[in-house]
């Protein structure tokens, strides 16, 4: 398989505060790869660096054979990287349709193409076509996640990066979202999935990397990772926390 994305020895920091070190991983064409780990392990930070929202202190990022380490985020979108950010980050005062249109900003001079892409997203998420002229801020959490996912697909990315797509959503909707992620992948888009819900992540991806306090501590096929003692430990810790937060939110 050909390599799509590869990082080598990434070192990431927020200002003076180091967040990640020696992050080396790769995503091949057609794969779903997941980064799992506890809250604060550096998963989102790594994903932000891939999308260009955070420039690394050291190390390199290659995408389709090109060094993109210093490229600003808006250039990376043009090359074919799309990020669904944590917390969805839809534009609240733009309508759902306008949000989708902006996802296709690189095709802004081709109206017919943008319309065709919107129809494709509506076919994927019929709910969104009902909500098309509503402000995105008025949509439910699940609808916003669909919108954020659809918006990312509007740029026809080679690599779709997802940051915690299950966060704050009801289990039924989470299942829907993960089913969609798999079908997006089947249609030819590679996926880099960051998830706290390791159970879902390992069931969806083919390979995974486990992050702990800013470093990769394990990697391999998901089937192997599921048996890994450290991962199982993270599982249990996670489930316990999840149970508590669910009770609190009720």
């Amino acid at each position: 398989m050909t390599e799509l994305l590869a990082t080598d020895g990434l070192e990431l920091a927020y200002g003076q505060t180091p967040a990640c070190r020696d992050i080396t991983f790769h995503v091949d064409d057609g794969e779903i790869v997941t980064l799992i780990g506890a809250n604060g392990a550096g998963k989102s930070t790594t994903l932000r660096a891939i999308a260009g929202a955070l420039l690394p202190r050291a190390g390199t990022i290659r995408f389709r054979g090109q060094d993109i380490t210093r490229l600003p985020s808006y250039e990376r979108t043009r090359l074919g990287i799309a990020l669904v950010p944590e917390g969805r980050r839809v534009f609240p005062f733009l309508t759902a349709r306008e949000n989708l249109e902006l996802g296709a900003f690189k095709y802004r001079n081709d109206k017919a193409k943008v319309r065709a892409l919107i129809d494709k997203v509506f076919a994927m998420f019929p709910r969104l076509s009902e909500r098309a002229s509503q402000n995105a801020g008025t949509l439910s959490g699940g609808e916003q996640q669909m919108l954020a996912l659809g918006r990312a697909m509007m740029s026809e990315p080679y690599l779709l990066c997802l940051d915690e797509p299950s966060l704050g959503l009801a289990p039924m909707i989470v299942q829907d979202i993960f089913r969609t992620i798999r079908s997006i992948n089947t249609a030819g888009t590679s996926v880099l999935l960051v998830e706290q819900n390791a159970r879902y992540a390992l069931a969806t991806a083919s390979r995974g990397y486990v992050l702990q306090t800013g470093s990769i501590i394990a990697s391999g096929p998901c089937a192997t990772l599921k048996e890994d003692e450290r991962v199982r430990h993270a599982y249990l810790g996670r489930s316990a926390v999840e149970g508590v937060s669910e009770r609190v939110s009720r």
Binding site: A51, A53, P72, Y74, P85, F91, F93, L102, F105, S155
Partner: peptide, 23 residues
């Protein structure tokens, strides 16, 4: 498109960058 992009930048500059908009 540019006008919508402008509104997007004023609502969330970082996410606008992710859309391929040069803020």
């Amino acid at each position: 498109f540019l006008g919508k992009a402008l509104r997007a930048v004023s609502q969330d500059r970082e996410t606008a960058g992710l859309m391929g908009i040069n803020p």
